[in-house]
Design a binder for these strands. Structure first.
Length: 882
DNA sequence: TTGCAGGAATAACCTTTGAAACCG
DNA sequence: ACGGTTTCTTTGGTTATTCCTGCA
């Protein structure tokens, strides 16, 4: 049996910690990719999309987003439906005492709308004082909408209504997120396997200048040795922002032929090239999955692409679907610090780009122009791009043109010279930002989404040929952030396997942790892939030992990185930081134990390791976990009992804070495994209520067992065995909690005896039930047939001769029909006997008269102490047995 | 302009073992 | 007076999270 609490825990938790606890629900049992089906997510997602299409008028996303745009000062007419409580403003004003369940939101809307509507037509509306109560009710029950004419000057519209995601929306978002992740993983594996194609590798080798061929024989390659190769590749392969609908493998071949492709293809080609040179190489991709949080997807969900069903799941280029995050401000396109040079380009380029954009940039501006037919590139929804976005994209394209065509014939304006100059001055890694490629349809333009990792001298080295960057793992995060992409999952693919290497590229794990899916699930998904990845011997014949060493070395490296994260400088980060904590952000039920060591300070607050944070519980709650307090332990924290507990009781007594007015909390270190009194002489130790609280098996007194069967207490009682009702939880109803019982607790030695007797008793009960139901059926047949016989007899006696024959026929027909339907449950012979009995004149005579029923004792229902008595005429009554 | 702190708002979670009135 | 039955009632405090505002 499930208590309410247990049932409620199905709800999706917010926190990361809680998320991990939820692992039990996850499809991790078999750990293979095939077993972790995205079907549930797809179904829910489709359902949601479908429902969105129909529910345009609801207060949900649609209205909320309309109001949101209203708040941004655009003049719009907005319809607001407040669920079923849609009351015109005039009524709202005149019905102050109106007490509705949703009264709060009604009033809220009212106050927020008052000024908005001051100039509206509402003033001319009918006087609601004239409305009768009935009219009023009608208004409420009919779905009336409020129309608001908002003008930019309205200051009440400044504050947009806050609509928060429900638990269901969160669940859907998470399922979509998981499904998307699985799709992206699958995509990564496709690319990885394409990189192993011998034909492609051979073609790449044939393209390679001979001086690089010797790299394949070198043993101790350094980063520097790779630089010329990377530069050569960077200059030989151009990044194009379009994609085709071809399979990835053939698209890759095409890209190889034209030496031009999407970032994904170019990165894949670079991986293939390294592999062709016998370098152990991974294809690395940022899995930019749909957001885990519902709100972040709001703008996306409204986009036509998803609405028409050609979204993430059907796109052939999953990696480059549109951004999930709404663009908020053009200024945010560039971070202030780490990528200063981008900002400098931004500043320098703006006047020139706006005045004379190059033809190249125009031809590449398919993300801006909705009517670009110059190429067969996919058309992309304009969405809600603003001036800042457009500017940014133009500048990006300028930058792109500058690098992608630096050896070609395209205009060689001053701006390009400047770009190149900047590029040369900067170190190779930061130059990447000026030569950022463009992902089609993405507002996360230029984010490095794909690169390679080459295994050099015992270390996986970041190699981004698209941006001509080597060993720039520390810069990826800043670049990604600069391009409004989130670096939540960085996955390295190799040998049909995959490994999460996010840690290598992420300095501030606490910032992304909450945007990542439940780690238990993710680890379970990756476990088989990680195995495949570590087993791969791509190009190098490694022994098992060496491979394991390599894998564990990397694991250690990532682990070290995870454990040595720098202290955040803002306090808020410590609220849910996985490594550090400060005292002020601890909850009521948390404490630092031991209080130390101090790892540093943040705004004057000492920083402690998160591992020192301990959960506190009351004595009772520890008991439920099978733990009891050690002797002489004092509470580490004492809380004032909440007002509610004292409410309704005599306040005078409770004003003085005594032991009853406080809550004593203890830490786990103050507890020990539960040591309950042992059952003795067949007597079950009971609590003060004469029962046993069975929160779990741990809470059972030693020597006893829990028999969770209905009615089993009867058996124990009958056998004269000592027992206690098993209280298994609470049901919360009507503002109160009721204990839930499930079976009994008895001493172990009686277990078999009771179970045997219970089995027999249940068998007997089942038999009795069946017998009763048969008897009931028989009795009903009896009644039916009696009435038919009576009717027939009346007809025979009083009806005219011609009617008799027809009536007789009808009745017989009816009876036969009934037999056809019910003969299975009732012995037909019995019924026939009854019929013949009733046809006997003597009996018929009895019924014919206004006879007095004569009841004979029928069956007794033992459970309800009800005896059923029947008259021979078929009439029966139920009598309670005293 | 940006990031942070702090406050406010909100959704979800957690709570956790009758009593008074009535009637026969 | 007593014992059994019916009716009443349908939380609200705490926490996590997010949004907003003001400030540096």
């Amino acid at each position: 049996m499930k208590t309410r609490n247990q049932a409620k825990r199905k709800r999706q938790p917010y926190g990361q910690d809680d998320t991990n606890k939820e692992a039990g629900d996850d499809p991790k049992a078999n750990g293979t990719l095939a077993n972790i089906t995205p079907q549930k997510g797809i179904n829910k997602f489709q359902k949601r999309v479908a429902s969105r299409g129909l529910k345009g008028k609801d207060i949900n996303f649609d209205s909320a987003s309309k109001l949101e745009s209203l708040s941004k000062g655009k003049e719009k007419q907005v319809k607001v439906n407040i669920g079923s409580q849609n009351i015109p403003k005039a009524e709202l004003e005149n019905s102050a005492p109106l007490n509705t369940d949703d009264g709060k939101s009604s009033m809220q809307v009212k106050s927020e709308s008052e000024d908005v509507m001051a100039d509206s037509d509402w003033e001319d509306g009918p006087n609601s004082n004239l409305n009768s109560e009935i009219d009023h009710q009608n208004h409420i029950s009919n779905n009336i909408s409020i129309e608001i004419d908002a003008s930019p000057g309205d200051n009440t519209a400044k504050r947009k209504p806050v609509r928060r995601a429900s638990a269901e929306e969160k669940e859907v978002a998470e399922l979509v997120h998981r499904t998307h992740l699985l799709c992206l993983l699958a995509r990564g594996r496709v690319i990885d396997s394409a990189c192993n194609d011998p034909l492609i590798q051979a073609s790449l080798l044939s393209l390679l200048p001979t001086k690089f061929l010797k790299l394949s024989e070198a043993t101790n390659l350094t980063v520097d040795a790779l630089t010329p190769l990377v530069n050569w590749f960077h200059s030989s392969f151009r990044v194009r922002s379009s994609s085709s609908d071809k399979s990835f493998h053939s698209a890759l071949a095409t890209a190889l032929g034209t030496q031009e492709g999407t970032p994904e293809e170019v990165a894949a080609l670079s991986v293939a090239m390294f592999r062709s040179l016998n370098l152990l190489t991974r294809f690395v991709s940022i899995l930019d999955a749909a957001s885990l949080k519902p709100d972040a997807d709001k703008s996306d969900d409204m986009s036509p692409r998803r609405k028409t069903g050609t979204g993430v799941f059907q796109s052939s280029t999953i990696m480059v679907t549109r951004s999930n995050e709404p663009s908020t401000s053009s200024n945010k396109q560039f971070p202030p610090l780490d990528v200063d040079h981008i900002a400098s380009i931004h500043n320098k380029q703006t006047p020139e780009t706006s005045s004379k954009p190059s033809c190249q940039s125009q031809s590449q501006s398919q993300t801006i122009s909705p009517v670009d037919d110059q190429s067969n590139e996919r058309r992309v929804d304009l969405g809600s791009k603003r001036k800042g976005d457009l500017e940014f994209e133009m500048q990006m394209q300028m930058a792109l043109s500058a690098t992608a065509t630096k050896t070609s014939e395209i205009s060689n304006t001053d701006s390009f010279k400047k770009l190149k100059k900047i590029k040369c001055e900067e170190d190779p890694s930061s130059s990447s930002s000026s030569s950022i490629s463009t992902a089609i349809g993405s507002r996360k333009v230029g984010a490095p989404l794909y690169w390679a990792e080459v295994y050099l001298n015992g270390k996986w080295v970041h190699v981004d040929t698209i941006n001509a960057t080597i060993d720039g793992e520390n810069k990826v995060e800043a670049l990604v952030a600069a391009c409004k992409t989130s670096l939540r999952y960085v996955v390295a693919f190799n040998g049909q396997g995959a490994k999460d290497v996010t840690r290598r590229y992420c300095a501030k794990w606490y910032k992304i942790a909450s945007h990542r899916v439940n780690s238990t699930w993710w680890d379970a998904v990756l476990a088989p892939l990680k195995d495949l990845e570590s087993k791969t011997t791509q190009g190098i014949g490694l022994s098992d030992n060496l491979r394991n060493e390599r894998a564990s070395l990397e694991d250690m490296e990532l682990e070290t990185k995870a454990l040595t994260e720098p202290l955040p400088t803002n306090q808020q980060a410590y609220r849910s930081h996985h490594l550090y904590a400060i005292e002020r952000w601890l909850t009521k039920y948390q404490i630092l134990h031991p209080k130390g060591p101090i790892l540093g300070f943040c705004s004057g607050h000492p920083v402690y390791p998160r591992a020192s944070v301990q959960i506190l519980h009351t004595k009772e709650k520890w008991l439920r976990e099978g733990l009891q307090l050690k002797v002489n332990e004092l509470p580490v924290k004492v809380l004032e009992r909440s007002v509610k507990v004292n409410k309704g009781k005599v306040t005078d007594e409770d004003d003085c804070v005594g032991p009853t007015g406080t809550i004593h909390l203890y830490g786990k270190w103050q507890t020990e495994p539960l040591c309950l009194p042992h059952a003795q002489n067949g007597i079950v130790p009971k609590n003060e209520r004469g029962q046993v609280d069975v929160w779990s098996e741990k809470c059972l007194p030693p020597g006893t067992v829990h028999l969770g069967f209905p009615r089993i207490f009867n058996i124990a009682k009958k056998l004269n065995v000592d027992y206690a009702p098993a209280m298994v939880g609470f049901e919360f109803k009507n503002g109160r909690s009721y204990p839930l019982y499930n079976g009994i607790v008895v001493c172990s030695e009686f277990k078999d005896m009771i179970l045997d007797a219970y089995g027999e008793e249940e068998e007997r009960r089942g038999e009795e039930e069946r017998r009763k139901s048969e008897a009931k059926a028989l009795s009903r047949w009896y009644q039916l047939l009696s009435s038919i016989v009576t009717r027939q007899r009346l007809n025979n006696r009083y009806a005219k001769p011609e009617e008799v024959s027809s009536c007789h026929k009808n009745d017989v027909g009816k009876t036969n029909d009934s037999f056809d339907h019910c003969s299975t449950s009732v012995n037909t012979q019995d019924v026939q006997k009854l019929v013949s009995l009733q046809e006997n004149d003597d009996v018929a005579q009895t019924f014919e008269d206004d006879h007095e029923h004569v009841f004979v004792n029928g069956s007794l229902d033992v459970e309800n102490s009800v005896r059923k008595k029947s008259c021979r005429c078929g009439f029966s009554i139920e009598v309670e047995e005293m």
